[in-house]
């Protein structure tokens, strides 16, 4: 009839041809790439392909992966053991640590394997979900013990040994080494990720240090600033913790503050803190209903325990040897049957 009708027809025809082709190519769709070809960082999850599995009555276990290597390797150790030894399907959900609490409370996430008590969110989460409405169970310690400190690169201490302890920062001429345009006369103390407890302003004031806090706003910002300063051997004083993959890359020294004491952190002492941060005993939590839904997985996760050395070894494997977290976890599992066999429920 008309040109338009004709073209419309041919257009439609070619689309149909493509669609048919697409369908034809989809024949092996369910066998979607189990391990993606992506190399480098951990392979992207394709949980999409999972539900077709026969594990009918076994629920899918969803583990939270936070964006640091330590969290990743824990999760992949647990994932591989849960899948191979207990026959579960495990999905890894990459999520910001601050968004995970409501999710684990509701069951969108089954368990979180590495929580740092110093996170402000986590204190709240514990109070609200674990102690409060009991939608989340405390699964005990992970075994790894962390610690927040003030750090300087080693070359700073080499040059100015006084800066290894807090007294050194009382001296204006030494503190000024750290000064920037933002801080003027005082030295800059780079405070990190705002999600962490930070008493630095209190500590600085109560110890009378010539420092001024600049809030970096994110962990990445601190790391980038460190990388830059380190490359030029410039002084930098910042808030960080261990274990952290950054210690594999740079030689950092914690600044010695007055020792931690319970009195120093007592409620009555609010606003007057003048001592070091406490140790961070990392812990695990799970959704409360996991206990009934998957008792053996629950038991396994509660039993799971890594040492500092275990985690640091795996982190190094990823950071220095270029393995993916999954590969590093696999290597560790192969070597440490004695350790993980104890985690399996009897």
């Amino acid at each position: 009839m008309s040109h338009k009708r004709l073209t419309a027809c041919t257009h439609a025809l070619s689309w149909v041809a493509v669609a048919v082709l697409a369908l034809a190519a989809c024949r092996q769709a369910p066998a979607a790439p189990a391990e993606s070809p992506a190399a480098g960082s951990p392979a992207a999850e394709t949980p999409a392909a999972a539900p077709a599995q026969p594990a009918a009555e076994k629920p899918i276990i969803k583990l939270a992966e936070n964006p640091w290597t330590g969290s990743s390797v824990n999760v992949y150790v647990a994932k591989q053991l849960l899948e191979d030894k207990l026959g579960y399907t495990v999905e890894v959900v990459t999520i910001d640590e601050n968004a995970q609490w409501p999710a684990v409370a509701k069951g969108d996430i089954s368990a979180i394997l590495e929580i740092w008590p110093s996170g402000e969110t986590h204190q709240k989460g514990l109070k609200q979900y674990v102690e409060g409405d009991k939608t989340v169970d405390h699964l005990g310690e992970l075994g790894v013990v962390g610690k927040i400190s003030w750090y300087v690169p080693k070359y700073v201490v080499d040059q100015y040994p006084e800066l290894a302890t807090w007294e050194g920062y009382k001296k204006p001429e030494l503190a000024r080494l750290f000064a920037t345009a933002e801080t003027g006369e005082d030295g800059q103390f780079l405070a990190g990720d705002p999600s962490w407890v930070q008493y630095d302003e209190e500590i600085i004031q109560n110890l009378g240090l010539k420092l001024k806090v600049v809030r970096a706003g994110s962990e990445q910002a601190v790391l980038a600033a460190l990388d830059s300063a380190y490359s030029r051997k410039e002084p930098l004083l910042f808030y960080l913790w261990t274990p952290h993959s950054v210690h594999n890359k740079y030689e950092l020294v914690p600044v010695k503050l007055p020792d931690y004491s319970d009195e120093c952190y007592a409620e009555a002492n609010a606003g007057k803190k003048a001592c070091d941060y406490p140790k961070d005993v990392l812990f695990k939590v799970a959704n409360a209903r996991l206990k009934e839904a998957a008792p053996d997985a629950y038991q396994f996760l509660a039993n799971m325990k890594l040492t500092d050395a275990d985690q640091i070894a795996m982190i190094a494997d990823v950071e220095l040897n270029g393995k993916t977290p999954a590969e590093a976890a696999k290597a560790w599992i192969e070597k440490h049957e004695a350790v993980w066999s104890k985690w399996l429920p009897k």
């Binding site: 910001d96 601050n98 968004a99 969110t121 709240k124 705002p194 999600s195 809030r215 706003g217 990445q220």
Partner: peptide, 20 residues
């Protein structure tokens, strides 16, 4: 900007997210 040291409202928004 708040995530790279810009302070101000940006930092407050980041705090809102990161501390729930």
């Amino acid at each position: 900007a708040g995530m790279v040291g810009g302070a101000g409202l940006g930092l407050e928004a980041v705090i809102g997210l990161t501390r729930s």
